[in-house]
């Protein structure tokens, strides 16, 4: 599926919840259920420090696609990470670089992407795009 298609699916899924509590319970479930990164990649080098929570991010090339794995010590952050990975992982570098990720706003969670939140998510997206750019250069 393309990034746009996955985004649409997520927006649809969140459409089932009309209050904040349902949405957050869903995000918490996502955060709880997934092992998102291999333990060996939870290194100091892969850490993105936010003031509030920490995020680990690892990227590698698989053919012409990039596979991301990530984790966080906060469950809500981890839930949001799982959404970002669902959208951006297994996509080509160009698609990742050009993704505008508007779905986060559409599901009513853009507050988490405010740079002042310092939960590491903004830096994580930036880092994902940088990885895409770096791997794209390698692939050429």
């Amino acid at each position: 599926m393309s990034i746009k298609e996955i985004e649409e699916t997520i927006v649809e899924e969140f459409g089932y919840y009309d209050d904040w509590m349902g949405k957050y319970e869903f995000i918490i479930e996502l955060g709880k259920s997934l092992p998102l990164i291999a333990e060996k990649y939870k290194t100091e080098e892969n850490i993105i420090k936010g003031c509030q929570s920490r995020v680990w991010l690892h990227a590698e090339a698989e053919g012409d696609k990039i596979v991301f794995t990530a984790d966080s010590d906060a469950i809500i952050t981890k839930g949001l990470i799982s959404l970002l990975i669902r959208v951006l992982s297994h996509q080509t570098p160009d698609e990742i670089i050009n993704a505008d990720l508007r779905f986060i706003d559409r599901i009513g969670l853009k507050e988490h992407l405010s740079p002042t939140r310092s939960n590491g998510l903004v830096s994580m997206i930036k880092q994902m795009k940088l990885y895409a750019l770096a791997l794209k250069t390698k692939m050429l």
């Binding site: 509030q52 929570s53 906060a74 469950i75 952050t77």
Partner: peptide, 22 residues
């Protein structure tokens, strides 16, 4: 073992302003 950030986000939704972090 609830992360302070997680607690802070949910409390905020209930109108309660606390500080979380270091």
């Amino acid at each position: 073992n609830i992360h302070p950030y997680d607690a802070g986000v949910i409390l905020d939704k209930m109108g309660i302003a606390v500080r979380t972090g270091h």
